[in-house]
């Protein structure tokens, strides 16, 4: 497997607080790489650093052999480095289909086009509907996104990220706030994606993590303390001590 994403010595400080303290991480093409750690470990900061929403104080980000340390969000997205949000970020006042249409349009080249109505660009509608179908929302296409059920909104969130045709999908707590049944659907959805796209999964739900991940990295106090296959992580003494404790035992 080829290396797709490499973080080297990423440091982010907020005033006196060090959120990530020299993170080194390599993600292989095709794997599902879970990122776990206790609250306040710096997971969200790390997601922001990878996606470009924040710039680090030191260190570098390489993606597909290219340095993207200083690239803004939209340029990373263009290269296939795409994230979803922990707090659902969709267009709440637009229909699910219009949400998907905006996402599809983003992947279709420049939007500095001022004349042709989007309504007449049939390929957009077709692709948008296909996208909704993929996450199981096709029958909800005309519904205003803000009125969708929470689980459906999370699916739409994933759909928007998928539209960018990611090479690497950065999923920030995709199961947050979902009920047991909705969680199951989402795990299924992510599992289905796993074959086609590399996934970095930030998640608290250990059942899901151990079910989905090929490799797991553990972030504690802004540092990666261990990286390895699920079985290795489960038996790593340092990880148990630093973070997982009994939680791991119950997941296993």
């Amino acid at each position: 497997m080829a290396e797709l994403l490499r973080l080297r010595g990423l440091i982010k400080r907020f005033g006196g607080l060090v959120a990530t303290d020299g993170v080194d991480l390599t993600v292989q093409e095709g794997e599902v790489h879970a990122l776990i750690g206790p609250n306040g470990a710096g997971k969200t900061t790390l997601v922001h650093l990878i996606s470009g929403a924040l710039r680090g104080n030191a260190g570098s980000v390489f993606f597909a052999g290219e340095e993207l340390t200083h690239a803004p969000v939209h340029e990373r997205v263009r290269r296939g480095l795409v994230r979803s949000y922990q707090v659902t970020s969709i267009f709440t006042r637009l229909s699910a289909l219009d949400n998907a249409l905006l996402a599809v349009q983003a992947a279709a080249g420049s939007s500095m086009r001022f004349w042709t109505p989007v309504r007449t660009e049939r390929a957009f509608t077709r692709d948008a509907r296909a996208l909704l179908m993929r996450v199981g929302l096709l029958d909800r296409a005309e519904v205003v996104a803000g009125t969708l059920a929470h689980g459906e909104q999370r699916k739409l969130e994933v759909a928007l990220a998928l539209a960018a045709r990611p090479r690497l999908l950065l999923l920030d707590e995709p199961l947050a706030g979902l009920g047991p049944e909705e969680s199951l659907h989402m795990v299924e959805l992510i599992g289905g994606l796993a074959g086609e796209v590399t996934i970095v999964l930030v998640e608290h739900d250990m059942d899901a993590v151990f079910k989905l991940a090929h490799r797991i990295s553990v972030l504690v106090s802004g540092r990666i303390v261990a990286t390895g296959a699920p079985d290795e992580i489960r038996s790593d003494a340092r990880v148990r001590q630093a973070y997982l404790g009994d939680e791991l035992g119950s997941a296993a």
């Binding site: 997205v77 263009r78 969709i90 637009l94 905006l102 939007s111 928007l160």
Partner: peptide
Amino acid sequence: ENETRMEALGYAV
């Protein structure tokens, strides 16, 4: 509607 989301979709907002 949602500027942050547009950026994350890849638009140079």
